[in-house]
Amino acid sequence: MRLEPIAAPSWQRRLIPPAAAILATFVIAALLAQIAGGNPFSIFGLILSGALGSKFAILETLNRATPLIFTGLAVAVAFRAKLWNIGAEAQLYAGAVVTVVLGTGALALPAPLLLPLLALAAMVAGAGLLLGPALLKTRLGVDEVVTTLLFNFIFLLFVSYLLEGPLKDPMGMGWPKSPRLNPEARLPRVVDGLRLHWGFALALISAVAIWLINTRTTLGYEMRAVGQNAEAAQFAGIPVTKVILKTALLSGGLAGLAGYSEVAGLKGALTLDLSPGFGYTGIVVAMLALLHPIGVVFAALFVAAIFVGADSMSRAAGVPSYLADIMLASALLLMVLAILLSKFRLRRD
């Protein structure tokens, strides 16, 4: 068997496989829900109403989507240049740590100055954390997948140390938790009284900014060229190493912003469960969005809706909320397959 590219795929050819992938995801979820003793159709109703059924639910979904937009963008930027950054989880925590360190009194500035400064510092922290693996890749050829993955474990242990040592809240009744941010370091809410913070707006702005970088700047062009064929890019005079390092800084910075937005916008303090795997889910978000920055926003909303909906479905129907994780992992695998099938056909020989 071999793959044969289709010269000019028809619209059916481009549309049907991705649609079938989404449908198959729901069929798998329905079967699994049935096994767990739930009624498959009421399950999807419960997920939908849990994610979008009330003002509270919608705000919860938007809040959950915010870090996913940042980590999704971080992964999308990196993967587009074939820099396999699987370390967004650690970079997120790096941004969060810096936000807490500087936002609990170390920088005594008014909010309009402090907030942008904290965002910048979080970006630098996230970027710095990815720079190591990126340099190991460009200098020594060490695969960044494994190094960024291992960094996740190392950095989480480091955060655990900070929360039990230097960053521990003296008023925290012994819990591993940082002190709360000063009020000036908190991101205000978009509308008074509604539980949605400016981190969401910042995420949208970031998505547009990445889209502009991708489509309107030399760097955006170079990142794509390196991703498509690094050798050809080198031959065409693109400084491949520099482009990879710039990509790493951008990607790590975006993941750092996720940590900043979660701490300054939502939680107000750092704990070890700040992120329930936002860094890893960012990979699913980016792939579902086909690495397109505006697509990332919609994919993050979709993924967040499934997570929030599954939480409330699980409480109501007793089907484990891990169903959401299964749906997303299947969607990821089925979608990459669907995209291939919309461009290639499998031929027997």
Binding site: L3, Y280, Y322, L340
Partner: peptide, 28 residues
Amino acid sequence: VPFGLSQHVVGIGLTLLATSLTFYTYRV
């Protein structure tokens, strides 16, 4: 292999799938 999809993406996706299926089955 036959579809030649990115081994990075397939592998990460498989880890997510196998882990979540395991946790789901455990809870069921």
